[in-house]
Every structure is written in C-alpha cells, then in structure tokens.
Amino acid sequence: MKTVILIFVILAGGLLLYGTMDMPAWGDPNSPANTYVSPRYIEEAMEATETPNIVTAVLADYRGYDTMGETTVIFTAAIACALLLRGIGSARKEEDES
C-alpha cells in the first residue's frame, strides 16, 4: 500500500514539476504576477489609505473582504472546537465555577 502511495505521490510531484517548467523565473520582476495587479497597490496604497505597510492596506482595505472571511474562519474553528469538546449551554455552571 505504501509503495502504491509513494508511486502516486511521485507521479503527482512529477506533474507539478512539469507545471513549473513554464513558470516565470523565480524572482523575475517582470513576471505577470508582479506587473499586472499588484503595482497599483504599491503606487496607490499610500495615497489612498495613508498606510505605509502595503500588506496591511491590501489586507484590510482592498481585499478587506477576504480578511473578514479569514476572521470568520477562525471564529468557525473556535465554535467547531467548542461544539465538539464541550457541552455548551452549560454556561451557568462554568460561571459558577470561576
């Protein structure tokens, strides 16, 4: 079984390596990823949001919606863990204890 999985994994890795062949070189400043959307963030963020840390500006403003989703993910995880590992609704009991 493990051999089968190993072969499968190697094949999948091969596929991914095949995919990397046509990628722009690592660190190429002229790759599409670095020239299409992101320059505008760098050039505009300071002016539009007065936030020098572009990552923060993009995170909380341009793509703020993603970040809201991210926070929700954390919240979901907290609720899921709580649902699984404790019987909630027993809030009163726990309050008594503390």
């Binding site: 400043p29 990823a33 670095n34 992101s38 320059p39 505008r40 760098i42 990552v55 993009v58």
Partner: peptide
C-alpha cells in the same frame, strides 16, 4: 512599483 515586493 518596481522598488517594492509584490504584496498581494
């Protein structure tokens, strides 16, 4: 833009 890393 060329002076900074891609933040996205």
């Amino acid at each position: 833009a060329a002076d900074y890393l891609n933040p996205l």
